[in-house]
């Protein structure tokens, strides 16, 4: 019998297709896991950015991972409310993002960027906070493009949402 804990173990293997350094649990998109009496698993996920094309891929990857592990039936539900926030990225997720070269998001409580001020973002390469945002829009919907003035490396920042 497949248990909820087993499903969660399996979800550990489902990576964010655009940022394969972290999995869907660390990204904080999995809102609920239910296992019905007949063994069918229902996984509820919430989209990060509204138009993020990775969401469809994530849903397909979750299905594939669970079906291959012997779960008899899988349904992935999409839930809009409550809206996802970068605060749901776990501490492990944030650490992995940094190791991967992406500056993790600041706390939404500290959402200075939207009030006209720039947040203080540390360079994931050298740790310097002498950094500057080049563009609020990066290679994916969730990232902004930054540059470090000390080591001169450009880097992505997972922007606060």
């Amino acid at each position: 019998m497949i248990t909820k804990d087993r499903i969660l173990e399996l979800l550990d293997y489902v990576k964010d297709p655009e940022i394969p350094a972290i999995n869907v649990l660390e990204l904080g998109v999995v809102r609920q896991v239910e296992v019905e009496a007949d063994g069918k698993a229902i996984v509820t996920i919430t989209p990060t950015y509204t138009g993020c094309p990775a969401m469809d891929v994530m849903a397909a990857d979750i299905k594939k991972e669970l079906l291959e592990a012997g779960v008899p039936a899988v349904e992935v539900k999409m839930s809009l409310s409550p809206a996802w926030t970068t605060d749901w990225i776990t501490e492990t997720g944030k650490r992995k993002l940094k190791e991967y070269g992406i500056a993790p998001p600041e706390k939404t409580a500290d959402i200075r960027a939207l009030k006209g001020e720039q947040p203080v973002v540390a360079c994931p390469q050298c740790g310097s906070t002498n950094t500057v945002m080049l563009s609020a829009f990066g290679s994916t919907a969730c990232k902004a493009l930054w540059k470090c003035n000390d080591c001169l490396e450009p880097f992505d920042q997972f922007k606060c949402l």
């Binding site: 989209p47 950015y49 509204t50 138009g51 993020c52 094309p53 809009l80 080049l134 563009s135 609020a136 829009f137 990066g138 290679s139 919907a141 493009l145």
Partner: peptide, 20 residues
């Protein structure tokens, strides 16, 4: 380049909301 990326990102946000 940054603006090319910014506008397509914005297009994606708008189409995401439109789809919902």
């Amino acid at each position: 380049l940054e603006e090319d990326i910014a506008l397509t990102n914005r297009a994606l946000d708008h189409i995401g909301e439109a789809r919902n």
